[in-house]
Amino acid sequence: MVPSDIAFRIIFIFQTGVGGLGNSVLLGHYIFTYLTGHRLKPIDLLFIHLAFVNNGVLFSKGIPQTMAAFGINNFLDDTGCKLVVYLHRVARSLSLFTTSSLSGFQAITINSKSTRCVNFKAKMPKYIVPSCFLYWAFSLLIYGHIPLYIKGPKESRNATETNEFIYCSFHVSGDTLLFTIITTLLDLVHVGIMVWTSGFMVFILYRHHQETRYIHQNNFTPGGAPETRAIQTILLLVSMFVSFYLINSIMAGYMSFFKPSPWFVHSSAFLAACFPACSPFVLIMSDSQVLRYCVAFWRRIKAPILTLILG
């Protein structure tokens, strides 16, 4: 057995399991907070949506990739391949939308000097849920083209097909390339929003730092410790997403035109799942309430887990 195969098996199991647990704990915290009568902040709704779609990305990519790493390549038929790849692309698109929305939301929130932003900020919370539903509908529609060119591993292949996912294949044609260009441009729009709003927030933080050198107040506008931590959290999430997205996009572009090795496919899948696996822990560590919830949850389940392990 090749050592790299063993390594990828462990990596995918760990990444999917730990990432899924982190997103589920985050979802559990916000659901528990809502059910106990506490009011959720508008940005919490975006965090809930991000955790939910990130689990979709992890499970639709991580589970099939883990099975493929174990050498089980024909576990999906043609319909299964179409469904899994379709759900992954939709969830990935929604994760991109939510991350860019978080960045834009935070940039508008801290821009207190613009009258237009102040007025929009007051109305913004009521747009969050409708915009998420609207983008769900948009993503489900635009990626409805995917089942047309995704095929199961048992389907016949020729020189015009590429075994991109190991467990599935896709047909390369003129329509496929056009669809890829359109969806890539949409992704770049979201990435552009992230980069622009992140640059704006960095500028606000720098200006705040310069002003507080002369005005020694802890609650100076726009900062205050909670707002500053929120900005830093969003900047870290955006940096992670953009970095993993760019690297994975380059690898996906290569796989669209050349037949990659299994090692290359596994590496691309690992990078594609890094953000949804890591982002919940960034949010957990940046929010003291979520962290306290996680500590209490761990204390409650620690004894049964140890009992199960030790027999």
Rank of each mutant, 00 (worst) to 15 (best):
residue 145 H to G: 13
residue 240 M to Q: 00
residue 193 I to V: 15
residue 175 D to Q: 04
residue 186 L to Y: 03
residue 219 N to G: 11
residue 230 A to N: 14
residue 150 I to W: 01
residue 138 F to L: 12
residue 231 I to L: 07
residue 172 V to I: 02
residue 186 L to F: 04
residue 219 N to I: 12
residue 178 L to N: 06
residue 220 F to H: 15
residue 192 G to H: 04
residue 160 T to V: 07
residue 239 S to M: 15
residue 184 T to W: 10
residue 238 V to P: 00
residue 140 L to V: 02
residue 210 Q to F: 01
residue 149 Y to Q: 09
residue 147 P to C: 04
residue 218 N to F: 12
residue 207 R to Y: 02
residue 232 Q to M: 11
residue 201 M to S: 11
residue 168 C to A: 03
residue 216 H to F: 11
residue 138 F to T: 04
residue 144 G to E: 02
residue 234 I to R: 09
residue 147 P to I: 06
residue 188 L to I: 11
residue 141 L to E: 12
residue 141 L to Y: 15
residue 219 N to R: 09
residue 221 T to E: 03
residue 174 G to A: 01
residue 159 A to D: 03
residue 203 F to D: 06
residue 229 R to G: 02
residue 235 L to F: 05
residue 175 D to T: 07
residue 156 S to I: 10
residue 233 T to R: 12
residue 185 L to Y: 05
residue 223 G to I: 06
residue 181 I to P: 00
residue 187 D to H: 15
residue 191 V to H: 03
residue 239 S to W: 11
residue 135 Y to C: 07
residue 158 N to F: 13
residue 172 V to R: 04
residue 224 G to C: 03
residue 224 G to Y: 00
residue 238 V to C: 00
residue 168 C to L: 05
residue 223 G to V: 04
residue 234 I to Y: 02
residue 179 F to L: 05
residue 234 I to T: 09
residue 135 Y to V: 05
residue 230 A to Q: 14
residue 160 T to M: 07
residue 216 H to G: 06
residue 177 L to Q: 11
residue 143 Y to T: 09
residue 237 L to Y: 02
residue 229 R to F: 12
residue 156 S to H: 14
